Each structure stands twice: as C-alpha cells, then as structure tokens.
Amino acid sequence: MKKKTPDVFQDIQQIQPVYTIHELKEAILKGDLTKMEGIPPLLSARIEAIPQFAVGTFTWYIANKLSIGTMGGMSEHFTGHPAGYWLNKNPEEYLQLLHPDDAPYVMSYVKLIYEFLVALPHEKKNYIRPHMYFRMRNPYLPQVYRWVMFQYIEWEYAHDGMIACILHLVTDITHLKQDNTVRMTILDSSEANNQLFFSNVPQSEVQALDTITVCRLSGRELDVLRLMAQGLSSKQIAAQLDIAKNTVDNHRQNLLKKTATTSSAEAVAYALKNGLF
C-alpha cells in the first residue's frame, strides 16, 4: 500500500510556538552530524536555476543541520553582510534577523518541517514543497521588516535517514504579500490531487493545522506563473522559455481557469497564498 503523508504531520492538532533555540537544537541536532563537503550535483543544478524563476530579490544557502555551509545570491541585501560572514555561524545570530513576534513560530515551523521530512518516505521527496512566510529585518533600515518567502528547494538524506543538508531560498515578497499573516505551507503533489497542509498565525494565536485541495499545475504552467510574478509580458516569457507567444497565452488562460481567477495579479496571489512557489 502506498504510504500516506507521515503521521508526524497528520496528528498535529495545534502548532505551539518554540521560544528557545535549545528546543530547536534538540529536534534537529540528532544522528549523523557529519557536514557535507562541497555542493552535491543536484543542489548545484537547483542553484543555477534560481535566478530564472525567483519572484523577487533573493538569497540562497545550504544548511548543514543548523549551520550555514554555503550562501549565495543577494546576501548583503538580506543580511547586511557578505555571504562569507555567515559561514558556520551559530543559529542564534541569524535568528536575530527575524521579527521578534515571528521568531517563535518560525522555529516551531522549522522543527515541524524537519520532523516531517525525516518521517517522509525518501521516494516522495520530489513531490513535497515546504514554504514559510515571515518578516525579516532590513539591515539598512533597522525598524523596517520585509516579508519573505522561505522555501525548502532540495535536501539530501544522511546514511542514518536524518537530513544531511537543505538548500533554502529566501525571496523578498513585500511587493506581493498583502496580509499580515505568518504562514507555513507544505504542498504534497504525490496524490491524484495536490494537497496543501497549512498553518496561519493571525496576531498572537496559532490556528489548528488544516488541509485544502489545490489545483494541479503542470511544470510549464508553473514556469509561466513564476515569470508572470516578475511582471514579464507574454512576449518576454516566450523569449525566456524559448516557446511561442501563443503558447504562453494559452498557458495564461489555463492558469486563470485552473485558479478561478480573472487576472495575472490574482493568479500570482493565488499561487503565493497556496504555496505553489
């Protein structure tokens, strides 16, 4: 029988905030602590594709457990420091970049997602897309916070089944995010219908975990949608993807129909809200 989504996620009735880094470390610093040397080929391929599909300014990094092994992209834009500054830094330092109201929930989400990925059948990993949405400090305007989308792009398992490393992408979505909700989503596209697990944090309360069914988009439709989010025209998208403009227009119409929206902006907002990218 096909194994369903791990019980570690299904059985959660309410996500509780994590207030100490010690609790987070207890969950993640288990098993093999050997750091991965170099960047695995699959992660390199994912990194090369990031600039083509990012929906805003971005930075990426590879996490070895709770330390940063490699960072790239626009790191100074997000952190005020060059990428090399963060190599092997303690998590306490980079957690200071989070909005203080969001940090406990972000830590609880990181803990839950890590436990979820460890319990996941390894063959399902290509169908799982975890995301978080929260606020990060603007290092150049200390009282200003940006909304960011924090994605789990790819991860590698260690020989003991724990997580060896994870490629994260952090994207500035202040120009897209309209509400004031800290959110976690996990999209599972392994079944006949995409299933989205999500949790919102309205004000100071955490709602119960819930699920909804999300429309299924093809890989090409997602490519077009990401480029739509960048504000590209059909002609520009066609050139970027090396396809005909009419084909792009057809994808746009299919996207509006599948997402039950009436404009590109609404389709992008739907994708953002439902963790499609």
Results as ranks from 00 to 15, higher is better:
36 M>G: 12
7 D>W: 13
4 K>R: 14
11 D>Q: 13
86 W>L: 02
36 M>K: 08
55 V>M: 10
50 I>G: 03
32 D>C: 05
80 G>V: 02
2 K>E: 14
66 L>V: 04
58 F>G: 05
3 K>G: 03
63 A>G: 08
46 R>W: 02
94 Y>W: 15
15 I>D: 00
61 Y>F: 14
61 Y>A: 04
95 L>S: 08
89 K>P: 03
94 Y>G: 04
25 K>Q: 08
31 G>L: 06
57 T>P: 08
24 L>E: 00
20 T>M: 02
45 A>G: 08
17 P>V: 08
94 Y>R: 11
87 L>F: 09
85 Y>N: 03
44 S>G: 06
76 E>N: 08
61 Y>V: 01
53 F>P: 07
87 L>K: 12
21 I>R: 03
6 P>A: 12
95 L>P: 01
92 E>H: 12
89 K>W: 05
75 S>H: 06
47 I>T: 02
67 S>Y: 15
43 L>I: 15
49 A>Y: 00
56 G>A: 06
90 N>Q: 06
95 L>D: 11
40 P>G: 01
5 T>Y: 01
26 E>F: 02
13 Q>S: 13
36 M>E: 14
40 P>L: 02
66 L>Y: 02
30 K>G: 00
23 E>F: 03
74 M>E: 15
25 K>V: 02
73 G>V: 00
11 D>T: 14
2 K>L: 14
38 G>I: 06
91 P>N: 01
73 G>P: 00
15 I>K: 01
83 A>R: 11
57 T>Y: 05
39 I>W: 00
46 R>S: 06
3 K>V: 12
62 I>M: 07
52 Q>C: 04
69 G>D: 15
89 K>R: 09
